[in-house]
Design a protein around this nucleic acid. Structure first.
Length: 195
DNA sequence: ATAAAGATCATCT
DNA sequence: GATGATCTTTATC
């Protein structure tokens, strides 16, 4: 496989466009155990200032959301229920926007994923959810703030996506009107998409 | 006061 | 049984 890392300016496009263009891209993570990667098949956009569902809502700037205010192309990891979630920071400096990676399709290092997730599981269950893919790839809060265009955690050119669908996001029922925003994108027909 | 970390409970598989 | 942009508690500044 010829891995072609994405250029830095790929991340400078508008968040909603980036969320769509990330589909089909290859997400890679290198650890001491080896390399694991997968194609991104599902994403969600979070635009801080006007998005109640975002941690950076209302330009709330803290040490925790700090990375989202910085330049795009960086990793924003968040721990929830002992599970870890990954985001790709987007928007220019001062704009707390990010794209949540909800699901990927295993590409390489699959054995590694089975070791982390459990050999009895089906391939589909390895990465079809935010908390799942982070565990499968070995992404932890330690990866917070790392650049997404160089090892050990980075994104490269992947496959062309046939059809992109969009719709309301998931798991943010208590976010008021923001829950209606169709900022969730996924590859149509891909079985690795959650739900 | 703010941030990080661990837990609980409803929902889906 | 597993998962999840939450919630509560404790640690740090």
């Amino acid at each position: 496989m010829n891995i072609q890392l994405l250029k830095v300016d790929f991340f400078t496009q508008p968040t909603l466009e980036l969320a769509q263009n990330l589909l089909g891209k290859l997400l890679l993570k290198e650890t001491t155990d080896g390399l694991a990667s997968g194609w991104i098949v599902e994403t969600e956009a979070y635009i801080g200032p006007g998005d109640r569902a975002a941690h950076s809502f209302g330009n709330r700037r803290t040490k925790r959301t700090e990375v989202m205010f910085g330049p795009p192309g960086y990793v924003y990891t968040y721990v929830m229920h002992t599970h870890c979630l990954v985001n790709v920071v987007s928007g220019k400096i001062g704009h707390p926007e990010a794209v949540l990676i909800r699901a990927i399709e295993p590409a390489s290092g699959i054995e590694l994923m089975y070791d982390r997730r459990g050999h009895e599981k089906k391939e589909k269950d390895l990465t079809n959810g935010p908390g799942k893919l982070t565990k499968a790839l070995g992404i932890t809060r330690e990866d917070y703030g790392l650049p997404m265009f160089e090892p050990p955690l980075y994104i490269a050119e992947g496959r062309a996506v046939k059809d992109v669908q969009s719709g309301p996001r998931i798991g943010i029922e208590n976010s008021g009107e923001a829950k209606e925003y169709p900022w969730r994108y996924w590859e149509a027909g891909n079985r690795f998409v959650s739900r």
